[in-house]
Amino acid sequence: MKQKARDLSNKYFPKGPVAVLVVILLFIGVTLGIATIKKTVSVVIDGKEQKIVTYRSDLKRILADNNIRIENKDKINVSLDSKVKDGDEINIKKAVNIKVSVDGKTLSVVTAENTVEDMLDNEGIKVKDEDRIEPSMDEKITKGMDVSITRVTSKVVKENKELDFTTVVKKDSNLEEGKKKVIQAGQKGEKVIATRVVYEDGKEISRRVVSESVTKKPVEQLVAVGTMGVVRPSRGSSSLNYNRVIKMKATAYTASEACTGKGSGDPYQGITATGTRARRNPSGYSTIAVDPRVIPLGTKVYVEGYGLAIAEDVGGAIKGNIIDVFLNSNAEANGWGVRWVNVYILK
């Protein structure tokens, strides 16, 4: 029995040089095994790299062994449950505290996003194209940053506005001077004004007219203004309408031969150039001599201080702005003399 045991010992545990060889092979195997599980990984935190030598494969344990904590909002490029290999690079971006002012509130936000836009998307804060964000959406997130969001809205407001009518004045020679008469009543028009009103956080900041459209055109008012003159010979008498008034020198004449050159035997004595008999009628129309180039024959006039008259006669000395009023006697003519009067050309 003892002999059999010795035979087995010799068979499986050789002695001498063979034993030494076995030990060397075992050592090499263990060394190779250790070398196989040893690894170097790069951990980059906020752009700063550190090399970690480890025999572990579990990322979470590797980070814990090196006092690297991953907070809730930190970003890491691989899962914490990942198995690492030699030469792997682990990128970690640490979250920072910022403030976001929006909708009347100031929010404390912890974020590891790269830009303002990424942060807003991640936090579920909706913004519209019209809203104003400061700093800009592409601004890089930094620790302690203040982000302000101003809600910008606008609406178009329409309002009706009256349009004043214009007044057109026309002269009317058939209407007494100073009097007015509405020929056509004016009517106001209407237009619709569209105004864009802009609000920031509910407060109005600007208004701008974007369109105007006339829905009803105004109707112009037509007014006649009298140009016909009115003269009242005396208080209580009827007024006389005239077209114009002329300042003229007035002399006086009679039917006597001294004035007309026709004696008492002349059948044309006292007959005017128009064939009428010269007359002085204080209560009606009397005769005056005129220059027909200034006052046409047959024209009815009112002579200041003389009365109503008709231009029926002419005279050799009556040229230009001169008239000769007819009187019944030389005494009256001498009493008239020469005077300046207003002569009203009647309608």
Rank of each mutant, 00 (worst) to 15 (best):
K2L: 04
K4M: 11
R6D: 08
S9F: 14
N10D: 14
L25T: 12
I28M: 13
A35G: 13
I37G: 07
T40M: 02
V44A: 01
D46G: 06
Q50F: 12
Q50S: 14
A64I: 07
R69A: 13
I70C: 03
S79T: 12
K83T: 10
V84Y: 08
V109S: 03
T111W: 05
G124H: 11
I125W: 07
K126I: 08
K126L: 06
K143H: 12
G144A: 03
S148D: 14
V152M: 09
T153P: 00
V157N: 03
L163I: 15
T166H: 11
K171L: 05
K179T: 13
Q184V: 13
Q184D: 08
Q187K: 09
I193Y: 06
D201M: 01
I205T: 14
S211E: 09
V214Q: 11
L222T: 10
L222H: 11
V230K: 12
V230D: 05
R232W: 05
S234R: 09
R235I: 12
R235T: 12
G236Y: 04
S239H: 07
I246Q: 02
S256T: 09
K262S: 08
Q269I: 06
G270P: 02
T272S: 12
A273I: 01
R277I: 04
R277P: 15
A289Y: 02
V290S: 03
P292A: 05
R293M: 00
V294S: 04
V301I: 02
Y302W: 10
A309K: 00
G315H: 11
I318L: 08
N321K: 08
N328Q: 09
A333V: 10
N334Y: 15
G335L: 07
G337R: 01
G337N: 05
W340M: 03
V341A: 03
Y344I: 02
